[in-house]
């Protein structure tokens, strides 16, 4: 990086159009409306059109589904870490619980995928919340460690007790009726999750979540039970993870111990770092970048992890704020040199 000259510094100012679109005047002219809508529409329409664009590449259509599953996990991590203040490494737990419950519902009760997915989302969310309930008084890194323990434990227990198919897992799970259903179920879930959560965090409930994150003592002193709110946050977040897990079980037509693999805990965190924490959309963008990169890197064989690590490190060193923050700043502000 070049050293800035001594007699001048960079000044950052809001763009005029950004200021004009802050208030009620946003609807006064089409340029303002376009300014506000373009990035949002780009995201929504882009995601909705992606399966169509990828028709010539069926392999990448499948990758898109995996991207969406990781995106759900990343949103769940971002929400819990940056709005409720619980850093959870339990992504793999949500994934496994969701996957197993969908597979069991499908193979034992014969329910179709379009029923098992929503049922195991809610059921799995409830199971994960109950499991994590005793850990809720913990904070910071302690909660992270305990939540990491659960997926490890679950895998070993299934292996040792030989329940739920043991090491073979549950086979013969129905797939989605078509690739389109699979992709659009996932894409719509991601969009719904992002926009519902974004709305929720700015509502009064979201402010209580922020309060729990910033200062839980003050929330207690305000006569609010913080455990209830933490449990609610965990429930929302684990629902998203279980939704992803249930879809994955139907995509692979199989649920097994590898659904408790630590990838599902770690990659969402990496995606949130790359995309920008605390923005929700950023974590989706992070997944859109990281998961395909990891597919490309299959050519490197075992060096894949090393290359992956270098890319991550580069992001953290050079753009630690995340793509979303960087993009928002460039979109809303301009920079210029001023003489001191």
């Amino acid at each position: 990086m070049s050293e800035p000259a001594k007699d001048r510094r960079k000044e950052r100012l809001d763009r005029g159009i950004k200021v004009r679109t802050d208030g009620i005047y946003a609807i006064s002219h089409w340029t303002e409306i376009a300014y506000l809508l373009t990035p949002r529409l780009l995201f929504i329409v882009g995601l909705l059109l992606a399966p169509v664009i990828l028709i010539p590449f069926p392999y990448w259509q499948r990758v898109l589904s995996i991207v969406c599953i990781f995106a759900l996990l990343a949103i769940s991590f971002d929400f819990l870490a940056n709005y409720v203040g619980l850093v959870s490494l339990g992504g793999a737990l949500y994934m496994g619980v969701g996957g197993y419950s969908a597979a069991l519902l499908n193979s034992h009760f014969g329910l179709p995928p379009l029923v098992t997915v929503p049922v195991s989302t809610v059921l799995g969310g409830a199971i994960c919340t109950v499991l994590l309930l005793p850990c809720l008084p913990l904070r910071g890194v302690y909660f992270a460690i305990v939540s990491l323990m659960f997926p490890l434990l679950a895998g070993r227990i299934i292996e040792a007790l030989d329940v739920f198919g043991g090491t073979d897992g549950i086979m013969g799970v129905d797939g989605f009726s078509s690739g389109w259903v699979e992709q659009y179920v996932l894409i719509c879930s991601v969009l719904a999750a992002v926009f519902i959560l974004r709305r929720m965090v700015s509502e009064d409930v979201g402010l209580v979540f922020t309060g729990v994150k910033d200062n839980d003592q003050a929330v207690k002193a305000s006569g609010i039970n913080i455990t209830t709110y933490k449990a609610f946050g965990v429930f929302i977040s684990s629902m998203l993870g279980c939704l992803g897990g249930a879809c994955l079980a139907h995509i692979y037509m199989w649920a097994g111990i590898s659904q408790f693999a630590l990838d599902f805990s770690i990659i969402p965190i990496a995606a949130t770092v790359v995309g920008g924490g605390g923005t929700l959309i950023g974590s989706v963008i992070g997944c859109i970048i990281l998961v395909p990169i990891s597919e490309f890197l299959r050519d490197f064989g075992t060096l894949r992890i090393a290359v992956y690590a270098i890319i991550l490190t580069a992001f953290i060193v050079f753009k630690s704020e995340g793509i979303m923050m960087y993009g928002t700043r460039k979109y809303e502000q301009f920079e210029r040199w001023v003489r001191i």
Binding site: G211, A218, I224
Partner: peptide
């Protein structure tokens, strides 16, 4: 012990929501 990331008036939404 304020909620440092929130504006002052939003700090009061939390107790008002109790």
């Amino acid at each position: 012990r304020p909620y440092y990331s929130l504006p002052a008036f939003k700090n009061l939404i939390v107790p008002l929501f109790s």
